[in-house]
Amino acid sequence: MDAQLPHMLRSDARDNRDRVLEAARSLFSEQGLGVPMREIARRAEVGPATLYRRFPTKQALIDAAFADELRACSSIVHANCADPDPWRGLTVIVREITELNAANQGFVDAFVSSYPGAFDFAAHRADMLRALTALWRRAQRAGALRPDAVVDDLILMIMAARGLPPGPPSLRLAAARRFAALILDSFRAAPTTSPLPPPARLPASALAKA
């Protein structure tokens, strides 16, 4: 038992850190960057001392949460660009990136607006574009992706997904899934009869802004 204790403590520390970052991204998305640290600790179900031990300042937490967001995006792209089936890899990327954006878009927008020079976004985008372009070409050579589509269409889709309506997480997730399915159908070389995900029932306020 004594030999296992350090490993258990490290595992608990990682779990606490992950819960804090997940809670922070969620609350920053819902309420902006001004959300109190104590509220983040409550959402993560950790004590304030645990929170401050991992992240001594609010800025350190904001920076770590955004770095985690970029890593999540990069992980989705690179893991699925390596899929031997390029259409399957592209499908997962479109779905998961759209859902990631829907979950944390408010946080990303707030961070970029407040700290425009904090991260090397150009290098991140260039890395993503190289990987996606290679996958795109493989999908076209396999005959799964329509030949007149270009990778810029995928970038346009990702940009458009940033305009999903605000609202409860369940609504945003439903809208993201429906949107991703419609986009994938437009990219597919051959028509499909697969059913779409359930529609998102948008509030009248969202429709008024369209």
Results as ranks from 00 to 15, higher is better:
residue 105 Q to H: 12
residue 106 G to W: 08
residue 107 F to I: 02
residue 107 F to K: 01
residue 107 F to G: 06
residue 107 F to H: 02
residue 108 V to F: 08
residue 108 V to M: 07
residue 108 V to G: 06
residue 109 D to L: 14
residue 110 A to M: 04
residue 110 A to T: 04
residue 111 F to R: 11
residue 112 V to R: 08
residue 113 S to R: 14
residue 113 S to Q: 13
residue 114 S to W: 01
residue 115 Y to C: 02
residue 116 P to C: 11
residue 116 P to S: 09
residue 117 G to V: 00
residue 117 G to R: 05
residue 117 G to N: 10
residue 119 F to E: 10
residue 119 F to I: 12
residue 120 D to S: 06
residue 122 A to R: 07
residue 122 A to Q: 10
residue 123 A to N: 02
residue 123 A to L: 09
residue 124 H to Q: 14
residue 124 H to L: 15
residue 124 H to C: 06
residue 125 R to L: 13
residue 126 A to N: 12
residue 126 A to L: 15
residue 126 A to R: 15
residue 126 A to V: 06
residue 126 A to S: 12
residue 127 D to K: 12
residue 128 M to W: 01
residue 128 M to K: 00
residue 128 M to Y: 05
residue 129 L to H: 10
residue 129 L to F: 11
residue 129 L to C: 03
residue 129 L to E: 13
residue 130 R to K: 12
residue 130 R to A: 14
residue 131 A to T: 12
residue 131 A to W: 00
residue 132 L to V: 06
residue 132 L to K: 00
residue 132 L to I: 08
residue 133 T to Y: 00
residue 134 A to S: 12
residue 135 L to V: 06
residue 135 L to D: 00
residue 135 L to N: 00
residue 137 R to M: 09
residue 138 R to E: 02
residue 139 A to C: 03
residue 139 A to P: 00
residue 139 A to H: 09
residue 140 Q to K: 08
residue 140 Q to L: 11
residue 140 Q to A: 05
residue 142 A to H: 09
residue 142 A to I: 06
residue 142 A to V: 10
residue 142 A to M: 03
residue 143 G to N: 07
residue 145 L to R: 01
residue 145 L to G: 04
residue 146 R to Y: 01
residue 146 R to S: 09
residue 147 P to C: 08
residue 147 P to T: 13
residue 147 P to Y: 00
residue 147 P to I: 05
residue 149 A to R: 13
residue 149 A to K: 07
residue 150 V to Q: 14
residue 152 D to L: 05
residue 152 D to G: 13
residue 153 D to H: 14
residue 153 D to M: 11
residue 153 D to Q: 05
residue 154 L to Q: 06
residue 155 I to T: 08
